[in-house]
């Protein structure tokens, strides 16, 4: 009896030591799940999900405080990827958080801009350059299209311009020759 208890205690101590040691030795910095979720999010930093940026949303999802369908810029595909990562069923985007729009960049009408710098402060990725009483301009390559600069502008000089398809950005479409089509065109 005593021997059995002794063995169990010894075992417990030994295993506990191993566990404790590995907890220190293999400590994972930060929250790896939030990290992985963050990698899927489009980094628009638009806040449509109700969180101040993609990272906080990722952390909220990781903690189970937010649903996976609150990111319109990520679209259905983003939801699908998140569902895959988290092992849950994908669901349609929550319309309450907005609907997906074509990818756009902000454009400042330089004639109207009064140089108030309000948009510069609103931009989550510092993609607007300019200074007080100076005309501002968008660095199009860095703009995520989050639209956060639109509301603060006192003169409404910012508009969202959808990214037009040009040669370097052109993509091959999914071939539309598939088998069901025969049914539709030649249907018996």
């Amino acid at each position: 009896m005593l021997a059995a208890i002794g063995v169990m205690v010894l075992l417990a101590v030994a295993i506990g030591l191993v566990l404790g040691w590995s907890a220190i030795r293999f400590k994972v910095e930060g929250n790896p799940l939030a990290e992985k979720i963050d990698a899927i999010l489009p980094q628009t930093q638009c806040g449509q999900c109700g969180f101040p940026g993609c990272r906080p949303y990722a952390e909220a999802i990781a903690k189970g405080e937010a649903d996976i369908n609150q990111c319109p810029p990520g679209g259905e595909e983003g939801v699908k990827k998140l569902a895959e990562l988290l092992g849950v069923e994908p669901k349609p985007l929550d319309e309450a958080h907005g609907t997906p729009k074509p990818k756009s960049v902000a454009f400042i009408d330089e004639q109207t801009c009064i140089g108030c710098t309000l948009c510069i402060q609103a931009c989550p990725v510092d993609a607007i350059s300019g200074a007080a009483k100076q005309m501002h301009t968008i660095i199009a390559a860095e703009c995520t299209g989050c639209e956060l600069c639109l509301p603060p502008c006192p003169v409404d000089c910012i508009s969202m311009v959808p990214i037009a398809e040009d040669l370097p950005h052109w993509k091959w479409k999914h071939p539309v020759v598939m088998m069901k089509k025969i049914a539709e065109t030649e249907g018996a």
Partner: peptide, 12 residues
């Protein structure tokens, strides 16, 4: 079966 599945019968 083709008909039931919505496929064209002739080519198949």
């Amino acid at each position: 079966m083709l008909k039931a599945r919505g496929y064209a019968v002739k080519p198949f």
